[in-house]
Amino acid sequence: MRALCAIVARDLRLFAARGSEFVATLFFFVIVASLFPFALAQEPAALQKSAAAIIWVCGLLAGLLSLDTVFTRDADDGTLDLLMMSPVAPWQVALGKMISHWLLSGLPLVMAAFPVSVMLGVPVEKAGLLSASLAAGTIYMSWTGIAGAALTLGSRRSGLLLAVLVLPLLIPMLILGVMAAEASLADAPVSAYLLLQMALVVAVLPAAPAAASAFLKLHLRS
């Protein structure tokens, strides 16, 4: 537990020291989302209808941007080798990275999603639900994404590869998230979609660190 906290704290301190990267992720999200009102300027009604889809897709893409440096930076300066040789279990290393990735990229996205969805024409009282379902989505994204980053560690063009490998895995979450938002806009019950999103999160919480630890060990062996 202490090791886990230390890994998360280290990532947060590194972020405080050199920042910019995750801030850029957040601005990427806001800027891309705000392109849509211009692209759909002729039809404000269409904008409100597709607000949830825009937020979800932009959020997932923004989360993807910061993934490929998560392990490579540590691998380049040797930190990862030291961590893997230390008594800390590999799954703890992976879990620490997942938590810090979510804190630095997922959480700001969730908070930014609220004003952005209002800007896109979602009523204020429904924007909260969109943020809540995006919270589940970003956790799922961080967990699967970090596992993917562990898998592609050391490859050429790992960023591109990550997109090809991780985005298909996010499809179920995307479908549920957009369905929840649509149901809420149509004043239909949403709890079923939110519960299914939670189910996906609960499944990935233990599975992704286990998979990532296997990938990291494989990386070390070769």
Binding site: G154, S155, R156, R157, S158, L161, L218, S222
Partner: peptide, 12 residues
């Protein structure tokens, strides 16, 4: 794409 992306064939 993944198998092809490593310099070391075994790692891919």
């Amino acid at each position: 794409a993944l198998v092809d992306a490593f310099d070391d064939e075994q790692r891919g």
